[in-house]
Design a protein around this nucleic acid. Structure first.
Lengths: 270, 270
DNA sequence: TGCTGCATTTCACATTGTGGAATGGAGAAT
DNA sequence: ATTCTCCATTCCACAATGTGAAATGCAGCA
């Protein structure tokens, strides 16, 4: 015979249930949460809005999926470090996207590729091309990859290049031409931003490469000596030259990078 | 002009506010939370019951104050390691108290004393004596202190004894008689439990020592080679001899210790 | 073009949470 | 002992609040 017991606030309990669901399965869509928790979608929406307004959950810009905010996330596993960066980046990139009108991406290193962790392509007025979080891009030919390589510690750079050299893939041939690569990276450092290789016509792994007509400028997320990843702004190459675009928006992009880094640091400090 | 905005669940928002209040000020009484959050006490009570039922907050047995559960607690600061032990111990000690009918305490090392982190004295049918969390007790003369010393790594034991020897207080004179102390600790290990020194008549620091008529048996919380603290059961020495009481309840006490340790480990593992 | 799956909004209903006031209990002060 | 005070907990009448079915929107797909 359970005691009548003190009153329980059901709506709060459901909120916590959603939170727990998000802990078990980070990055859930509304549908996933609906299946998992059995709570009706309208209610879920209200709950998630409430949690988001309190900063307990965050939405991913790329596809609108939900994740637990850094405020409550548990033991920062290796896996979640990247998510913290993505979370810190989201509001900054969104603002950047609104002001520049062109979309941007956040990329972080992942094995022998760079990987998209966040993107505002869905938010941009101009729909450029399919993009998904988790998609991998080349390290040596893309702007984001080069921005990372140009500024990361020398030792880390050597390890990456060594790894790519031994992979022996055609698209990584630059890893076997240290002189040319060094010239390229030196240029990146001199200009303060990186762009994709002129011969790299876009198209991601698993898709037939085709001229996508896109170009971007990319800058690293520098945290002291380390580099956490890189962010870029993408536009249609027919609209502006790289020089014109950089003159107009490079400073904003660099400011955004600085803001993301300081935001991540702030959270880590806690 | 803020958008009309999606609906917000106010009761959930208040629940999160309480959670945040507890993060800023761990170990809050209802009154403190009432002042801090401005939420009415009946509502606070309902919210806290809900949070507790979901395992997000825990109550301290000693005085009923609330704290954030290990599930959500952030970066485990040194300070919170002890609280985790207390949290893990609470349900175990409560059960022990119900079955044995005598109260027990959880003590952990704190500088040159052992310190009470949790107690069921308030829960025991027999009200023995004032007890508060944070009260400090002697290391060499109490059962809990000796249980700790007897089982902790030799190096740690030497450091503690050295520290007490240099303190040069009268009640720490045993630190200056290594032979006698070693004999005592060897006996503890042989029996599997410790009791207070026969000359130690109770009374805590800051209070005039007086014969309190109490006695206890204490066992360590052994986590591998380390000792996290110790727990005891206290009774009126007129009621049973130490031998009778140990024969009846030692096993339960040791089981409780093992359960607390494995519970702490389980949480840490996550 | 119509179909399917998912996110979001609307709305009528009653479940659910709310706080003032009452109660209980434990110390401290007289 | 007796009162006073402070705090935790319970009660209860009231209406504010959360609820889900159904409608709408929207994008990809056959």
């Amino acid at each position: 015979m359970a005691v009548a017991g003190p009153k329980i606030i059901k709506s709060l309990e459901r909120g916590l249930r959603v939170l727990q669901a998000l802990q078990m399965q980070p990055d859930s869509s509304l549908q996933q949460l609906y299946v998992f928790t059995g709570i009706s979608k309208p209610s879920l929406l209200r709950i998630l809005h409430t949690l988001a307004r309190s900063g307990v959950v965050t939405r991913r810009l790329a596809d609108g999926s939900y994740r637990i905010g850094a405020t409550l996330s548990r033991a920062p596993s290796r896996r979640q470090r990247r998510d913290r960066i993505a979370e810190a980046a989201a509001p900054v990139l969104e603002r950047l996207c609104r002001r520049v009108s062109w979309p941007s991406d956040l990329m972080v290193p992942a094995g022998d590729h760079m990987e998209i962790r966040e993107t505002t392509r869905a938010r941009s007025p101009i729909l450029l091309q399919e993009e998904r979080v988790g998609l991998q891009v080349n390290w040596l030919l893309t702007g984001v990859g080069r921005a990372y390589l140009a500024y990361c510690p020398a030792k880390e750079r050597q390890e990456i290049i060594e790894m790519l050299r031994t992979s022996n893939k055609a698209e990584d041939r630059l890893a076997r031409e240290p002189a040319r690569l060094n010239t390229i990276l030196a240029e990146v450092r001199a200009r303060g931003y990186a762009t994709r290789d002129p011969t790299h016509v876009g198209g991601w792994y698993g898709k037939p490469p085709h001229a996508d007509g896109l170009i971007s400028i990319a800058v690293p997320l520098r945290d002291g000596a380390r580099v956490l990843g890189s962010i870029n702004i993408v536009w249609l190459r027919t609209a502006f030259s790289v020089e014109v675009f950089a003159a107009r928006h490079l400073e904003e992009l660099q400011d955004a990078a600085a803001e993301i880094v300081s935001s991540v640091r702030g959270r880590r400090a806690r």
